[in-house]
Design a protein around this nucleic acid. Structure first.
Lengths: 208, 208
DNA sequence: CCATGCAGTAAACAACTGTTCTCTGGAATT
DNA sequence: AATTCCAGAGAACAGTTGTTTACTGCATGG
């Protein structure tokens, strides 16, 4: 599908990715609104002016990071919600999936948690849009479940967003526990699992 | 109780408060890690060096803001959770209380939401500590409720933290809807109410 | 009433920022 | 083979930053 692009474009994308990676690293200890463009280029080893060949501003780079962090996550979410297991096992699977994702991409998770309410509006908007998509997709999967019979569209979306928020909270908990003891991590797993379970119980008795 | 303090101390606290207020204002459009101390003093109209008479750094000022934003909120939370009404009415009361608080102190709410996962560790820690206190207090109130019979301590705390997180999510939603149309605000009220209700239902059937 | 303490001032510091302009080497196109 | 294009370099710009040092004026306590 992807028409192999010339040496020219390849190098460009390489530098672009280097800028994104460097920025993501720097953002572990600060927030986007304090990230300087010179700081990023210095970390990569290119001239400050090279930055403009790829991004208009650090805010622009931020929205690109949002795409990188969340864009490829949609299929994963869909399949996780839709697998028609026993509810209890599905919860365990989801929690472990989140744990693995946080371990694999901690900087991405931190970035999203930090900039969701951060000081740069375009980035906040980009994150909100992605999360809204997640909400819709979760809702679509929930709608297929027999248990959703009799539910209004509004209520399904309400529940879907509750799940999405809960996933973010859980991811953030795993992030905090990342450098803690294994038993602390286990405690996070337990808490996250039970909170999900409680929500699922509420879902089950919603129409009573 | 408070021994009336002299002209000296009074003036000092006045400038200190002015610094806090100015910082809170500036933080509406950026995050703490990008807030400059000169920026703050300029907004107040004092010399940059005056800043050091009150705070070691902007991070220090940040933790003071955490105290200001959350410190006085504990009694309010306690009474809201403890009032032994019908569950449905209690939810409505809580949601409206959050709405009023966001209207009264939008900058405080934004600050907490932003810096909870922000780039300044001491501030993150201060917020986490306050939220943990909220969790404990909510748990204490829940424990008094007859419905909590048979619940383990861990599960009560798990539920309490779920409530606390839900309050923050709701506050953040109200913040976003603050400059939106009234019907958008009503939609937020509806969603928040139903999410709380679903959690309460889950709570009710937890021991099944 | 006088000496001390201390909130706030003023100036200077090296280091840093985003942005503009001009230039260059090599890939891409013809 | 000749030409165009463009990612990146380099230098310079006016402003900004945090922090130090020495100071001033006034409320405070003896």
């Amino acid at each position: 599908m992807s028409h192999t692009l010339g040496i020219r474009q390849a190098q460009k994308q390489k530098t672009r990715q280097a800028l994104l990676d460097a920025a993501l690293g720097l953002l572990e200890e600060q927030s986007l609104s304090s990230l300087g463009l010179r700081e990023v280029t210095r970390a990569v080893g290119v001239a400050p002016t090279a930055f403009y060949r790829h991004f208009r501003s650090t805010a622009d780079l931020g929205t690109a990071l949002v795409e990188e962090a969340l864009g490829s996550l949609h299929p994963m979410i869909r399949t996780t919600v839709s697998t028609a297991d026993d509810s209890e096992e599905r919860i365990a699977r989801a929690v472990e999936l989140i744990a693995r994702h946080v371990d694999a991409y901690p900087a991405h998770v931190r970035f999203i948690a930090r900039e969701r309410h951060g000081g740069v509006q375009p980035v906040r908007d980009a994150i909100r849009e992605q999360l809204a998509r997640f909400g819709q997709e979760v809702k679509d999967e929930l709608a297929k479940d027999p248990e959703s019979a009799g539910w209004s569209d509004d209520d399904l979306l309400m529940l879907a967003n509750l799940y999405v928020d809960q996933m973010l909270i859980t991811a953030s908990l795993f992030l905090e526990a990342q450098e803690a003891t294994p038993q602390e991590r286990d405690r996070v797993i337990q808490v996250a699992t039970r909170q999900m379970r409680l929500i699922s119980i509420g879902r089950h008795h919603w129409l009573d």
